[in-house]
């Protein structure tokens, strides 16, 4: 079956919509908090470290602090696993690529009037989204559906989402499931490498894994070779290519990079 991702900067109201949808369809509801919690359990990381991913990094301390890219990679990886388990309603704002590439995930944006029932928006969410994905959270082009709580109540919005999900186009198929697998594998590889190579980009296709990082630049063959060996030991990996040249990597992966 399909899954639903509800994105919004209005935490409470969108969660209410998600709850309605999940209960109607009998899907599992996962909020941002749930996601962070399960990620912490899965990867044995302190929750605080994961929560720091979404903290605003301001001032001198923010500039010098280590980028919590590992945390984000883990969270996205966890989301990927959850979605692969199917029948899921996710309410939050991570995993943009995941949602864009998988045709059977319905992406809904929940809008509200700033003074509406959901209370003030969390401006940090939009800002964080912009820095993390270089996209506008409320850009309707990113979504399959936009519901505006200014014009309807939570149940109505939930029903619209449920009705939309009935469209055949959100039916999973061999191709989209394969995309999901690829995404899951590349996420797994990224989680593994991101701490050592913060700029790592990974693309996986049917067990073939393509990795880029400037850390594998010319003259650092040893690191590349080592990484290759590590990755070949992973489950589901049949072929590994490690690149230190971004242009080459981009042309190999046609720009579809996780």
């Amino acid at each position: 079956m399909s899954s639903i991702a509800i994105w919004s900067q209005y935490g409470n109201q969108s969660l209410a919509v998600g709850r309605h949808v999940a209960s109607q369809l009998g899907f599992r509801l996962v909020s941002m908090q749930d996601l962070v919690k399960t990620t912490a359990a899965e990867f044995q990381m302190p929750e605080a470290e994961l929560a720091a991913v979404f903290k605003k990094r301001s001032g001198l301390k923010g500039v010098f602090a280590k980028k919590p890219s590992k945390g984000l990679a883990c969270i996205e990886q966890q989301l990927c696993r959850l979605i692969a388990e199917d029948r899921l309603v996710f309410v939050g704002h991570v995993g943009l690529t995941l949602c864009q590439m998988i045709s059977h995930v319905l992406k809904a944006l929940v809008l509200d009037h700033p003074g509406g029932g959901s209370g003030p928006a969390d401006p940090g969410v939009k800002e964080w989204f912009q820095t993390a994905y270089q996209e506008d959270l409320e850009d309707p082009n990113l979504y399959d559906l936009t519901v505006n709580l200014t014009h309807m109540d939570v149940a109505e919005a939930g029903n619209i989402i449920i009705n939309t999900l009935q469209h055949h186009k959100f039916t999973p198929m061999t191709y989209s499931l394969k995309c999901m697998d690829n995404l899951e594998l590349s996420g797994r590889v990224k989680t593994l490498l991101v701490e050592k190579y913060p700029d790592v980009a990974v693309k996986a296709h049917d067990g073939a894994v393509y990795v880029f990082s400037s850390g594998f630049n010319r003259g650092r063959q040893k690191a590349a070779l080592q990484t290759k060996q590590t990755l070949l030991g992973l489950e589901g990996v049949s072929h590994v290519e490690v690149h230190g040249d971004k242009k080459l990597f981009d042309s190999i992966t046609c720009g579809q990079v996780r």
Binding site: S103, H167, H168, K169, F170, T171, M173, C179
Partner: peptide, 12 residues
Amino acid sequence: AELAREAMEKGA
């Protein structure tokens, strides 16, 4: 993903 959706929508 677009083609996939178009195909499924049209009943593939």
